[in-house]
């Protein structure tokens, strides 16, 4: 491919119009799945033998933790696409994914801490999963802080894309070293996420919530990216028509 700035494949206007169609369906799917999953998990799933009702927090802690990690990889991959093919659209997706991922990491940390109270008696426990989540939060904050600190938008995009890539290389190493560190210092205690048995009555509501969270993530990412695109393309005609005519 010639080393030059070819007509970008994912032009922002095409992305904006295409997603107009998907958004309502995604929103509907996430609302339905999340409400069904919540009611099912809170009200109808049986109590856990050891932990009692506090384990019901698993239905939001686990999906949030999944998405916090998956979100970082989504951010890094769209950053990499932007770096390699110089696509404005993928940089916008990356910039939108950072705060969403950070919020999800915060949610999983918060729910993990609150869940720790009934389980271990204190809010903060240096459990391997929670510690890795904390470091992941720092990684997110690092990327967001860097993209705010650089004045020129193009340079900020490239710099935070590169930092996100460096982060993805380090995440497996960090998780493994924290796990090794945790088994070294902590005698075997109840691991937070493995409740005694994942029998179907708990698994299906969890599965519903996970899919619901994924739909919600996709919807939120798309809407944040669209808002960012409008700001970035505000000098173009299509953005102004969208803003003027928009709801």
């Amino acid at each position: 491919m010639a080393w030059q700035w070819f007509h970008r494949l994912g032009s922002p206007r095409w992305f904006y119009q295409k997603t107009n169609v998907w958004l309502p369906w995604l929103a509907l799917a996430s609302v339905v799945l999340l409400s069904v999953g919540t009611v099912w998990g809170l009200g109808f799933a049986p109590e856990d033998a050891k932990q009692g009702n506090s384990y019901r927090i698993i239905f939001i802690h686990v999906p949030a933790a999944f998405l916090a990690l998956a979100g970082y990889y989504i951010m890094a991959i769209s950053g990499a696409i932007g770096l390699i093919w110089k696509m404005k659209l993928s940089f916008a997706v990356m910039r939108a994914a950072a705060p969403i991922g950070a919020v999800l990491t915060f949610i999983s940390l918060f729910t993990g801490a609150v869940w720790g109270k009934p389980t271990w008696g204190t809010y903060w426990v240096w459990d391997a999963r929670i510690t890795s989540m904390l470091i992941l939060l720092f990684l997110y904050i690092g990327v967001m802080a860097l993209s705010q600190a650089v004045s020129r938008e193009q340079v900020a995009d490239k710099a935070s894309a590169l930092l996100a890539l460096v982060g993805t290389v380090n995440i497996p190493i960090i998780y493994k070293s924290v796990d090794w560190w945790f088994t070294l210092h902590q005698p075997a205690t109840i691991r937070l996420t493995e409740s005694s048995s994942i029998d179907p009555s708990m698994f299906y509501p969890l599965l519903t919530m996970i899919i619901g969270f994924y739909c919600m993530y996709a919807w939120t990412l798309l809407t944040h990216t669209r808002a960012l695109l409008l700001r970035r393309e505000v000098r173009t005609q299509w953005a102004q028509q969208e803003l003027a005519g928009g709801k």
């Binding site: 919020v103 949610i107 609150v114």
Partner: peptide
Amino acid sequence: MDGHGIFVWISYAVTFAALAAM
């Protein structure tokens, strides 16, 4: 929820508040 309710409801409240804000 025989004693654990406060923790469960706080977690769900904060989670859905954050999602709504986003």
